[in-house]
Each structure stands twice: as structure tokens, then as C-alpha cells.
Amino acid sequence: MKNYRLFLLDLDGTIYRGKETIASGVRFVRRLNAAGKDYIFLTNNTTRTPQMVVDKLQQHGIETDIQHVYTPSMATASYLLGENPHQKIGVYIIGEIGLWSELLQHPEIELNEKNPDYVIVGMDTDLTYNKIKIACNAIRNGATFIGTNADMNLPSADEWLPGNGSQCTMIAASTGQSPLYIGKPEAVIVEMALAKFGYQKNETLLVGDNYDTDIKAGFNSQVDQLLVFTGITSKKDIKEKRQPTFAVASLDEFPL
């Protein structure tokens, strides 16, 4: 087995399930700390700031800091700045505090509802028809359409909620323009995270419970994957599919 130096860790379904702690996930993080391994919590959630992620992890018994968190909001900001060096970037944002605070902390990125360069769409539980209308008009007028992630549904307690992918699909259907997605399973967020933290793909392992987001992000970015069956994907779900590098029932089973 490779001596992995960096572990990209999913959250919901891997470390916790909603308000329920996954004890083996918490123990895994503690084992990483004891072994001197670096890790980043790589989430698709844009509704929380990095500090809010840290606070939630603390509720599940994990002490960490914002230097160990990477979100699609952060990757989106890096993408915009990289594509438009030394320029002002006008954006129209659909989303919540995690997305707004991350984008607008950069002085190069400014709100522009009338003629934005980009329409950025993240999960918004207060989504309105008017927000969709403004986004669609901007995209028709030439704005680049970016979706922070393509999750069609989100698990919540004992139900499924429409995710950001559902919001983006509505806008795409109206405008005829498909978004550029940043979050998992796209390679963009993985490559941005590795560039930010200074690691190579061949020394990194992506850990998660969702085959269609976490594991496919590993496939797409050519980073090894560890699928854990404590969340969305079960062993039978992947029987006829491309297999991850590793698969375990519990993270307690994976040696460091």
C-alpha cells in the first residue's frame, strides 16, 4: 500500500450523518493525527463558512481549524481569480453565507446584478423566482454559468431534499446553457485543493461514502479513492461499476 501523505475527507456520511456521529470516522481522524498524516475536509457544502464547518466538527468530537477545510466556495473563488488575473470580476450570486462570504472577501470580486461576468449558483434554501429570473437573464446576456456542485439531492434525516444540481438544472433548462461545475465529482475542486496545500496526486487518498461524488471525483482527478459504506453507497450498489482503489465497511478497517 502507498504511504499516503494527504487524505481528502468527505463529511456527511463519512464523519457524521446529519446530527449523528459516525464514531469510526472520528477515530479515523484521530488516527491520522496520531500518525502525523495531513488531511483536508473536502465538502460539497457551500452553505457553511469554513469556521461553521469547524464548529460542526467540534460537535462530533473533532478538534480542527479552518486550515483543514476546503469547500466549493473556496475553489470557485480560486477559479475566478485564476481565470481573470488583475481584473475586476462582476458576479451575480445565488447561495448562502458560505458562498457569499468566501467570494466577496476578495476585493477583485464584486456584485453586479445587471451585467455580471459570471452567475454563481450554490445551494439556496431561500431560492426565489426572482433570483432565478435574474440569473437566467444574465446568462442569456453572456455571463458564464458556474454551479458550485451538481448534487441533485441532499440527505436530511429521513428524507431527501433538492440539491444545488436541481437548482442549476432549472436554470440550464431555461437558458439552454449548462453550468461549469466546481465541486465533487469534478476534478476542479480536487486539483485546486492540492495546489493550495502543496501535495501531489500520487500521495493523496480521497475518502468518502458517495460513489457518484467522492469516488468519481477521485476517478476524474486521478487520485486514489477509499469508499466507506457508512453513508449513501452500499457494497451492492457498486457491484457492476468501476471499483474504487479501496472499499471498507468502516474506516476502522483501513490501516495507516
Rank of each mutant, 00 (worst) to 15 (best):
K2R: 13
D12A: 08
R17K: 13
E20I: 14
T21I: 14
T21E: 10
A23E: 15
A34P: 06
A35T: 06
A35D: 04
D38G: 14
F41W: 01
P50H: 12
D55L: 01
L57K: 03
Q59S: 10
Q67H: 12
S73G: 13
A75D: 03
E83K: 15
H86G: 07
I89P: 03
I94L: 10
G95M: 09
P107S: 13
P107L: 02
E113C: 07
P116Y: 06
D117W: 01
T125M: 11
L127Q: 08
T128F: 08
Y129L: 09
I132S: 02
K133S: 15
K133R: 13
N137W: 04
A138W: 05
I139K: 12
A150M: 14
L154Y: 11
S156R: 07
S156T: 03
L161M: 14
G163R: 08
G163E: 03
S166C: 12
A172D: 01
I182H: 03
I182C: 03
V188I: 15
Q200C: 06
V207C: 11
G208A: 09
A217T: 09
G218A: 11
Q222C: 09
I232P: 00
D237S: 12
I238G: 01
E240D: 14
E240R: 01
P244N: 03
P244G: 04
T245V: 05
A247V: 00
A247H: 08
V248W: 03
L251N: 02
